[in-house]
Write a protein that binds this DNA or RNA. Structure first.
Length: 938
RNA sequence: GCUCGAGUGGUGGAAUUGGUAGACACGUUGGACUUAAAAUCCAAUGGCCAUUGUGGCCGUGCGGGUUCAAGUCCCGCCUCGAGUACCA
């Protein structure tokens, strides 16, 4: 009998589906284990071989944990709102719902094919109203809360109102928007309702504000900072401009400190945590106020170096700042206006590109130094960013290189405040080895002393305070798109008003066109029915707005990260119509034990979801402050693109080995599926593939035409996509699963290379031959020999440790060694093979189930106990050794199963590694530490 | 520029965390079986030298150091990759 993987895999796929083998229960006496994958966006091109890498790894863990008697939650779903489906809709008119539906069907087929043990009863889709109802609900909760810096958590807005009624906002310590005006209790009472609502927006955790946003005109929408790479959009690479727009934002900045400190509580990859820390960008320093000469106004700056305050020789403001227009001296107005105009018209990319070019202009006004009273000129310059700190800096050219360059360029005075340090060539940015000079009461102090003293002095004189600043900016939450969650808000007198839970879900309206309206409103502006009747609490026709009861609804939708910020809780109770997740479900499952996904989400999804988690935790809706205890980043699988080389101005191509003979050749990408594993091109296939090659001329070398190779990201446009369906068809899912694990360490990025797959395939067939010779079942009931047991138990030990450490590539090697050795020993013992099958089942589940059944078991092997190595006799042996430690020599002996005291001594004496130094110095007393391997220290 | 991470055969990668470097697999070469091919099995496979025989020397990006012992630890370089970028 041959290993017929097609038959076997089909059989078990059906069996698992029919019997609901992997359904998880919310009530169980077993300990729980929650293994989560980052859910995919179902794109039109289907899965490629890179996608399943993480799913295979998590599936191995899920199956392993089931063997270890855990109640395992291992769900899957779809992040199904998104740009591509919408752009397809714009081009073809097909509703994004249908596109998404088709893609999901395709994804599901592909996922099923690979034998994942998902509990599909718990599937979620972010674009389903049953799901986004709760996304909208969380939005409303955010709208209804503010962040109290005193108790360090989110509190209801009604508490804030009570506070305002008593004392106004002067003494409140809460997160609020920059520039929020102060008012007293009396003033609060005098406000109209609209004015109150408007004021409250400055405090709500999600708020509407006019702010500078990243506008991408090619995509027709705004983008968040993490959606921009190198000044262009992550999707499509289009230019980004700064633009003022009224937008919803999330006050994630309120949680900055907790997002940093709680990183210490979770077992996530250190590089990823570091990325989050950098992104949040905490810096400690001081706020300083500078009085503007001739105005009743102060400029507030943030600085990390208040100790250098006596070195200030000018101020620089960001050109975007409102204040600039106010304080500009009439004489300078023309120049300033022109400069502002120039900076506004530049895209972010252009601005980044000429970072080195120093530009700026003098405003003609001055501030007064808080300690010396000196007149300090105010400049504007675009090296100062409007949205970091206060958009203004106190320039200390002797202590900051950019200030130094600016001063040199415009010939501004540079004052040296560092003792014995020359600043002729460049600024001194060192903090450790300096003594302050020329600085009044700070003279002769070092950095730390000066910091403390100057902050005290600033606070005493009322011209500043010690403070902490974060780079993290509030996240823009509006998107001018159709295919996203509608924001559950309507407008009364242009003031946003929330819907309530009973009104949800606010379903997406039908539109005729998916483009913005003629007036430039987002696509939802095309909807006929899209206004809110506050009496009936229903969506009604836009057209007949009765000013008293019918109000326009919000036209923006939520960004892609909204649904993905909490989806992992919905899996716990996916079909609950009454709550986002029931109390029972959440009390049982609590949090994610293992989360697997790519590190590209470090500053997006993985930060936003932590923010929402903390918010919902503050509201006591969730039991833990961090949702994922452990996270692993699987590395990307890269494609190996193939190139052919065209001789200039011709339709003639040369084989790669002839490349030296061609000058100025042009490399052209061809489909990797037309190239075999020895890099030889299928020329006939190529002629059929694209018209341009139909009559082309191909110069071979020694009878073959070879292509060039290059490793790149796998993508459709690079023609380097390898589809898992074909691999499954040729070798089977079990081979694919094992091969992807065998390819290298999980976390590492690695190029896909089909060449090695036969090794894994041969292994599975070799394994099969332990059970069958020709057509005969050859398993016997003989007592296993010591040697056979040793091989098995060594493998059990190795594989168990490796699975626990997510080192799956070495697991596969261990299996190969084991099977080779059992083959050499001619072992067909039922006992040995039963255990080996269990060991193998997380990796090659279909094959393992088939063998399990053939071995005479009635039930699925999915829940059978994982084999253990019995080490108790070793521990006994070890106990008999006298224990002591003296000296630093150390020997390591791999303890085989039947090693006795004599053998250990012999091993130490006979070890070649014990060189002359040790001969004759055998320790009198030994300490033996039972570990993976036994260390003998003497 | 800053912050991480990585450099091991022809290739992907092992190495019990300081203890025989190159496991396992691919590829290559030779052999067996076959009319032949495929499949399968066996053997060799880091480099250099020596082979009548045991063998010897070098070798984990480069240069130093610690140690009886270094791919692994320390110092200084080089190269590549990732993230971030006028953050005051």
């Amino acid at each position: 009998m041959v290993y017929d993987f097609r038959k076997i895999e089909k059989k078990w796929r059906l069996y698992w589906a029919k019997n609901g083998t992997f359904r998880a229960d919310n009530i169980s006496s077993k300990p729980k284990y929650y293994v989560l994958d980052m859910f995919p966006y179902p794109s039109g091109s289907g899965l490629h071989v890179g996608h399943p890498l993480g799913y295979i790894a998590s599936d191995i863990i899920a199956r392993y944990k089931r063997h270890k008697n855990f109640n395992v939650l291992h769900p899957q779903g779809y992040d199904s709102f998104g740009l591509p489906a919408e752009q397809y809709a714009i081009q073809t008119g097909q509703h994004p719902y249908l596109t998404t539906q088709d893609n999901i069907t395709r994804y599901r087929d592909q996922l099923d094919q690979m034998g994942f043990s998902f509990d599909w009863k718990r599937e979620v889709r972010t674009s389903s109203p049953d799901f986004y109802k709760w996304t909208q609900w969380i939005f409303l909760l955010l709208f209804d809360h503010y962040y109290c810096n005193e108790s360090n958590k989110a509190l209801p807005i009604r508490d804030l109102i009570l506070f305002f009624e008593k004392e106004g906002n002067i003494n409140i310590n809460a997160a609020c928007s920059i520039g929020t005006k102060q008012f007293s209790a009396d003033q609060w009472h005098a406000f109209t309702q609209d004015e109150k609502d408007e004021m409250l927006l400055n405090y709500r955790l999600t708020y509407l504000s006019e702010s500078e946003v990243n506008w991408c005109s090619d995509l027709g929408t705004v983008l968040a900072n993490d959606e921009i790479i190198n000044g262009v959009s992550e999707r499509g690479g289009y230019p980004i401009m700064k633009k003022k727009m009224k937008q919803w934002s999330m006050r994630i900045g309120a949680y900055a400190e907790r997002l940093i400190t709680d990183l210490d509580k979770i077992d996530w990859p250190e590089p990823l945590k570091e990325m989050q820390r950098n992104w949040i960008g905490k810096s400690v320093g001081a706020k300083v106020f500078f009085q503007i000469e001739g105005y009743d106004h102060k400029i507030e700056v943030f600085t990390t170096r208040p100790d250098t305050i006596f070195g200030v020789t000018f101020m620089t403001l960001a050109p975007e700042l409102e204040l600039v227009r106010v304080i500009t001296h009439p004489d300078q107005k023309g120049e300033v206006d022109e400069y502002i105009k120039k900076t506004q018209s530049r895209t972010q990319r252009e601005r980044l590109a000429d970072v080195k070019k120093i530009t700026g202009v003098f405003t003609g006004s001055y501030v007064l130094h808080p300690f010396t009273g000196e007149r300090i000129p105010i400049w504007i310059g675009d090296y100062v960013l409007a949205d970091y700190g206060t958009g203004a800096v106190m320039a200390v050219p002797c202590g900051d290189q950019r200030d130094y360059d600016f001063a040199k360029h415009f010939n501004i005075r540079i004052k040296n405040i560092f003792k014995g340090i020359s600043i002729d060539k460049k600024a001194c940015t060192d903090k450790e080895n300096i003594i302050i000079d020329n600085s009044d009461f700070l003279t002769n102090l070092n950095h730390n002393e000066a910091m403390d003293k100057v902050i005290d002095a600033l606070e005493e004189s009322g011209s500043g305070t010690g403070t902490i600043n974060y780079r993290l900016r509030d996240a823009v939450f509006s998107r001018q798109r159709y295919w996203g969650e509608p924001i559950p808000i309507y407008y009364k007198n242009q003031i946003p008003q929330p819907l309530s839970l009973q009104d949800l879900p606010l379903k997406l309206p039908e539109v005729e066109k998916y483009l913005p309206t003629k007036e430039g409103s987002p696509p939802l502006g095309n909807a006929q029915k899209w206004a809110w009747n506050t009496k009936t609490r229903k969506v009604v026709q836009n057209k007949k707005i009765d000013q008293k009861t019918v109000f326009p609804l919000e036209l923006n939708t939520m960004p892609g990260w909204a649904g993905s910020s909490w989806y992992f809780y919905r899996y716990m109770d996916a079909q609950n119509p009454n709550s986002f997740v029931s109390k029972e479900a959440i009390d049982y499952w609590k949090d994610v034990d293992l989360y697997l996904g790519g590190s590209e989400h470090a500053t997006g999804h993985l930060l936003y979801s932590r923010f929402w988690q903390k918010f919902l935790f503050d509201l006591k809706l969730l039991p833990v402050e961090e949702y994922a205890k452990k996270l692993i980043n699987q590395g990307m699988i890269l494609g190996t693109s193939a190139f052919i080389y065209r001789t200039p101005k011709s339709n003639s191509y040369v084989s790669k080995d002839l490349l030296d003979s061609v000058e100025g050749f042009e490399a052209i990408r061809v489909d990797v599926n037309l190239v075999n594993s020895s890099d030889e091109l299928d020329i006939d296939g190529l002629r059929k593939w694209q018209k341009q090659f139909e009559f082309a001329d191909f110069k071979k070398h020694s009878g073959v035409f070879k292509v060039g190779r290059e490793v790149e990201k796998m993508s459709k446009s690079k023609y380097n996509v390898v589809n898992p369906d074909e691999i499954c068809h040729r070798y089977g899912a079990d081979t694919l699963r094992m091969y992807e694990m065998f390819l290298g360490p999980l976390e590492q990025a690695k190029p896909w290379n089909t060449a090695g797959i036969s090794g894994v395939y041969n292994f599975l067939r070799k394994y099969w031959r332990l059970f069958y010779k020709e057509n005969t079942w050859i398993v016997n009931d003989k007592e296993p020999s010591k040697k056979e047991l040793k091989v098995l138990h060594e493998t059990i030990k190795k594989v168990t440790i490796d699975i626990e450490n997510f080192s799956f590539n070495t697991c596969v090697s261990s299996f190969m060694i084991c099977v080779n050795e059992l083959t050499n020993l001619n072992c067909h013992s039922r006992e040995i093979l039963t255990q080996l099958t269990l060991l193998l089942s997380p990796f090659a589940p279909h094959l393992a189930e088939e063998i399990w059944e053939k071995l005479g078991n009635d039930n699925t092997l999915a829940y059978a106990p994982f084999p253990l190595v019995d080490e108790s006799h070793l521990i006994e042996k070890i106990k008999n050794y006298p224990i002591s430690f003296n000296g630093k020599m150390r020997f390591i002996i791999s303890l085989s199963l039947d090693l006795d005291e004599e053998s250990i001594k012999k091993a130490v004496l006979g070890d070649d590694r014990t060189n002359e130094y040790l001969k004759g110095k055998i320790p009198k007393k030994w300490i033996i530490i039972p570990n993976k391997i036994i260390n003998i220290v003497c």
